[in-house]
């Protein structure tokens, strides 16, 4: 469970882990660290005492059946939802992460270019050229200025994912990024995520789909069945 490599901090557990390990974390200052996080929804405990730590170059895939708290965990990690107990630390705070949720913040009445420019303005402003390049990278060349409601679900998801091809923070938290994408887009995105990890980025994601391309430092965090 615990990865003993000295400069790395990959470790996660759903039980109270040996706290002696935490000494290693200070060395490499991970992007994301969660200590003894418990999540409760409507009086049901989805998971408790969950510890995890994601450093540069790592990918963490959260798996589990529907209702096991994957999205809740990601929302807690992103700082959108308070945890019932425990602590989450993100290097750089909310500015240090990029969150793409199940609903990705794409306005149906705006064009892909307008949507992307606005999402960038919220975080890191991007110029028109880089927005167009990002849209071309996700295969939306020629769709820059049509309203998003005329695009298919998969194309709308691509608009949201185009943010990953712009200047973005190092830690990406993605909830079901592969939803509605076709085979080719899935392969492209998997390769892009692996490449991001190779360039010292970090990715936390949920998906039911088995990844075919994974970076060297890949981990899987299974969440239990709801009780």
């Amino acid at each position: 469970m615990y990865n003993p490599a000295p400069s790395e901090c990959a470790h996660l557990s759903c039980r109270p882990s040996s706290r002696a390990n935490s000494g290693n974390h200070v060395v490499s200052s991970p992007f994301l660290e969660a200590v003894a996080v418990t999540c409760e929804r409507d009086g049901r405990v989805l998971f408790e005492d969950l510890n995890l730590c994601v450093g540069a170059g790592e990918m963490l895939q959260v798996t589990g059946p529907n209702g096991s708290g994957k999205t809740s965990l990601l929302r807690i990690l992103a700082g959108l939802m308070p945890a019932a107990s425990g602590e989450v630390r993100v290097r750089g705070g909310a500015e240090g992460l990029l969150w793409i949720g199940h609903a990705a913040g794409i306005k149906a009445l705006l064009t892909p270019e307008e949507n992307l420019a606005w999402l960038c303005a919220l975080h890191r402003p991007a110029d028109r050229d880089s927005v167009w390049r990002a849209l071309a990278a996700v295969g939306l060349r020629g769709y820059e200025d049509v309203p998003c409601h005329t695009l298919s679900a998969g194309q709308q998801r691509r608009v949201a994912l185009a943010r990953l091809y712009l200047d973005a923070p190092a830690l990406w938290i993605l909830d079901e990024p592969f939803t509605a994408l076709d085979r080719q887009a899935v392969d492209g995105l998997e390769a892009h995520l692996a490449e991001h990890c190779r360039q010292s980025g970090a990715v936390v994601l949920t998906t039911h789909h088995a990844l075919t391309v994974t970076p060297e430092r890949y981990q899987d965090l299974p969440l239990g069945t709801p009780t």
């Binding site: 992103a78 700082g79 959108l80 909310a94 500015e95 992460l97 969150w99 949720g101 199940h102 609903a103 990705a104 913040g105 794409i106 306005k107 149906a108 999402l119 919220l122 975080h123 890191r124």
Partner: peptide, 22 residues
């Protein structure tokens, strides 16, 4: 409402600009 339903508000909350200004 529409910003809540399509996830825009999540992006606002995580923005580097103060939510009160937005």
């Amino acid at each position: 409402r529409s910003d809540f339903e399509d996830g825009s508000l999540e992006q606002w909350v995580l923005s580097c600009h103060p939510l009160s200004v937005l």
